[in-house]
Design a protein around this nucleic acid. Structure first.
Length: 152
DNA sequence: GCCAACGTTGGC
DNA sequence: GCCAACGTTGGC
């Protein structure tokens, strides 16, 4: 099993949206970055995912989701009415993929970015690296244990 | 709203 | 294949 972190602007798709989704499950659509896509390709059913809110207050990890379906072509790339439409992508040769994630648990309180920066052992976490913009990131097992131990 | 960091595009 | 220009992300 592997561990991951996904970033989202809550004005686009929030933790509350995930909880309210049918089956508390959503396709993680709209990722249009090759590195992030490549990580999604490595995601397997049962992998755990930190859910992080960006561009908001507080900047924080809110809870944990679980991968319930591994990578498959992101349907929004074929939909001309979608903001994620990619005219260069075809069903025969799709460029972008998505995974399905499901709500797993919510932390008793969000773990904020400033707080994470204080915690020994997280110095190399991708989220905390300067200029890191990756919206889908790997988390090491050790980082996962340190962060999840901060909350019930 | 600013701006640093990063990714992508396209001329050459 | 280089790299300047441009667009986007995201913390502050």
């Amino acid at each position: 099993m592997k561990y991951w972190l996904v970033k989202t602007e809550p004005s686009e798709f929030s933790w509350e949206d995930l909880k309210a989704a049918p089956g508390q499950t959503t396709p993680w659509e709209g990722v249009r970055n090759y590195q992030a896509r490549n990580y999604m390709r490595k995601m397997q059913v049962g992998d755990l995912v930190f859910f992080y809110h960006s561009q908001t207050n507080p900047l924080a990890i809110i809870g944990i989701a679980i991968v319930v379906r591994g990578a498959y072509p992101d349907p929004t790339q074929f939909d001309p009415s979608s903001p994620y439409f990619d005219p260069q992508s075809t069903p025969e040769n799709p460029r972008w993929e998505t995974v399905d994630i499901q709500y797993q648990r919510e932390f008793s309180a969000p773990i904020s970015l400033p707080q994470l920066k204080e915690i020994p052992g997280l110095e190399n976490m991708v989220l905390l690296r300067k200029g890191s913009r990756l919206s889908v990131q790997p988390v090491t097992e050790r980082e996962w244990r340190i962060v999840s131990a901060l909350r019930e």
